[in-house]
Measured scan of single mutants.
Amino acid sequence: MKVTIEENEETGKFTIKVKTEDGEEKTIEIPKENLEEILAKLPPNVEII
């Protein structure tokens, strides 16, 4: 699983794009305050880009 994290400076939010092993892609946008909480919940086999 690969996770790409991009900061949107205009909105102050982060866009998180997840690509699973089977090629499925999902995108979510979260507030900056929630980034550490989300990262802590990721499984250890995740590659963060």
Rank of each mutant, 00 (worst) to 15 (best):
E9S: 12
K2F: 09
E36W: 15
V46C: 11
E33N: 07
P44E: 08
T20H: 07
T11P: 02
I16L: 04
L35P: 00
P31F: 13
K41A: 11
K32W: 13
T4Q: 05
G23M: 02
E9G: 10
L42N: 00
E29R: 05
I16Y: 02
E25Y: 10
G23F: 03
E47N: 05
T11Q: 03
N8T: 03
E9F: 12
L42G: 00
I48M: 06
A40I: 04
E6Y: 14
L42A: 01
V46H: 05
I38G: 01
E7S: 06
K32P: 08
E29V: 14
E7K: 09
L39S: 00
K2Q: 12
P43H: 09
I28N: 01
M1N: 04
P43I: 07
N8G: 04
P43F: 15
E37I: 08
E33F: 08
G12S: 02
E7A: 09
V3N: 01
N45V: 04
A40H: 05
T11H: 03
K26T: 14
T27M: 09
I5H: 01
E10G: 09
G12N: 05
T27N: 05
E6S: 10
E37A: 11
V18P: 00
E25Q: 05
E29D: 05
T4I: 12
E25D: 05
D22P: 01
I28H: 04
V46Y: 11
N8E: 03
E24M: 11
G23I: 01
V46T: 11
E25T: 10
E33Q: 06
G23P: 00
E21C: 13
T27Y: 13
I38H: 06
G12M: 01
P31R: 11
E6A: 06
E24W: 12
P31G: 10
E37H: 07
A40S: 12
E7H: 12
F14Q: 13
K13M: 14
T27I: 13
K2W: 13
E25P: 02
P44V: 10
G12K: 03
I48V: 07
I49Q: 07
I49G: 03
E36P: 09
K17M: 10
T15H: 07
V46N: 02
T11A: 03
G12W: 02
K17F: 10
M1R: 03
L42K: 01
I28P: 00
N45Y: 11
D22C: 12
K32G: 09
K41V: 05
I30D: 00
P31K: 09
A40Q: 07
L42D: 00
M1V: 11
G23C: 06
E10I: 11
I30Y: 03
T27E: 06
V18M: 12
K41P: 01
P44T: 08
V18D: 00
E21T: 10
N34M: 15
V3P: 01
T20A: 06
K13I: 14
K13H: 13
E6I: 14
E36D: 09
V46I: 10
E21H: 08
L39M: 06
N34Y: 14
L39T: 00
E36N: 11
E36F: 13
E29Y: 09
P43G: 15
I5W: 04
V3K: 01
E10A: 10
N45P: 05
G23V: 01
I30E: 00
L39R: 02
I28A: 03
K13Y: 13
I48R: 04
K32F: 10
K41T: 12
E7C: 15
I28T: 04
K13Q: 12
L35R: 01
D22I: 04
K13F: 12
I16T: 01
I38N: 02
P44K: 10
G23H: 02
P31H: 09
K2R: 13
T11N: 13
I28C: 15
K26Q: 11
K19V: 15
K32V: 07
V18I: 15
D22W: 09
I49H: 07
I5G: 01
T4C: 14
E24Y: 12
N8V: 03
I49L: 08
I38T: 08
T11V: 02
T15N: 06
M1S: 05
N34V: 13
K41L: 13
T11M: 02
E33V: 05
K17S: 10
K32N: 04
I38K: 01
P44F: 11
M1E: 03
P43T: 06
K2C: 14
P43N: 06
L39Q: 00
M1P: 08
T27G: 02
N45F: 09
I28R: 02
E29T: 11
E21K: 10
L39K: 02
K17A: 06
I48W: 11
E6Q: 09
K19R: 10
V3M: 03
E6M: 11
E24A: 08
I48K: 03
P44I: 07
E33I: 05
E37G: 06
N34S: 12
I30N: 00
E33D: 08
K19L: 14
V18G: 00
K2T: 13
N34C: 15
K19G: 03
F14L: 15
V46W: 11
V3R: 00
E25N: 03
E29P: 02
E25A: 04
I30W: 04
I5V: 08
E9R: 12
E21D: 10
G12Q: 04
L42E: 00
K2I: 13
T15C: 07
I38A: 07
T4H: 06
L35S: 01
I30S: 03
M1D: 03
P43V: 06
I38W: 15
I30L: 04
I5T: 01
E21N: 09
P44N: 09
I38F: 15
N34W: 15
I28L: 07
V18K: 00
N8K: 03
P44W: 11
N8Y: 02
E21V: 12
I16Q: 01
P44Y: 11
F14A: 15
E7P: 05
K32C: 12
K17G: 02
T20C: 15
I5M: 04
V46K: 03
T20Y: 15
V18R: 00
E6N: 05
E36A: 13
D22S: 09
T4D: 02
L39E: 00
K19N: 06
I28K: 01
T15K: 09
E6C: 14
L35K: 01
I48E: 02
K13R: 12
E37N: 07
E9W: 12
N34I: 13
V18S: 02
P44H: 12
K32R: 12
N45A: 05
E21W: 11
L35I: 06
T20D: 08
K26F: 15
L35D: 00
I48P: 03
E33W: 10
I16V: 12
D22M: 07
E7M: 13
I48N: 02
T11R: 03
E33H: 08
I49M: 08
E29Q: 07
I48Y: 07
E10Q: 10
N34P: 01
E25K: 02
N8Q: 04
I48S: 03
I16P: 10
T20S: 09
K13N: 15
T27C: 13
K41N: 11
G23K: 02
